[in-house]
Amino acid sequence: MGTLPLFISGGEIAFIVFILVMVFGADKVPEIAKGLGQGMRSIKNATNEIKSEVMKSADKHKTDVSGVKTDVTKEIDKVKEDIEEITGSVKRRF
């Protein structure tokens, strides 16, 4: 499977899922995964809002932020990719 950015192997993920099932029961695991997905979506929305506010502020002050915009966009895209990679593995497991 490979290693996730958090350096968690497939075996460790399986062990965590096993513990979750043992502690919360099989019927609660989908609810937990749904909550995690909603949390990730909230983070994604917050980053988009921050990006929007930065761009509005720059436009308001008529500052040339093309370099800053590119850097911010790259960083946000990296965070989105990391979130998608993490939530993708969670979605595949459930």
Rank of each mutant, 00 (worst) to 15 (best):
I13C: 08
F7Y: 11
N48L: 08
E81F: 12
D64I: 04
S9I: 01
K69A: 07
R92F: 09
I43K: 08
A26G: 05
I50D: 05
E49N: 06
M22T: 11
D71T: 11
E81P: 04
R93H: 12
A33H: 07
S89N: 08
S89F: 06
M55A: 06
F15Y: 14
G35F: 11
G67H: 02
K74W: 04
G37H: 03
S57A: 13
R93T: 15
K60C: 00
R41D: 12
F7M: 14
V23L: 15
T47Y: 06
E81D: 14
P5K: 06
S9F: 04
G25M: 07
D82H: 12
I32V: 14
K80T: 03
N45A: 14
G25K: 13
N48Y: 05
M22C: 11
S89E: 07
I43Q: 13
G2Y: 00
V21E: 15
D59G: 15
K56M: 12
I8S: 02
D64W: 02
V23T: 11
I43P: 03
G37S: 08
I76Q: 07
T3D: 13
G25V: 06
I13Q: 10
T73A: 00
K34G: 05
V29L: 13
V23R: 12
L6F: 06
S52E: 15
D71H: 07
G35N: 15
E31N: 15
A46N: 00
S89T: 11
M22W: 13
I13S: 09
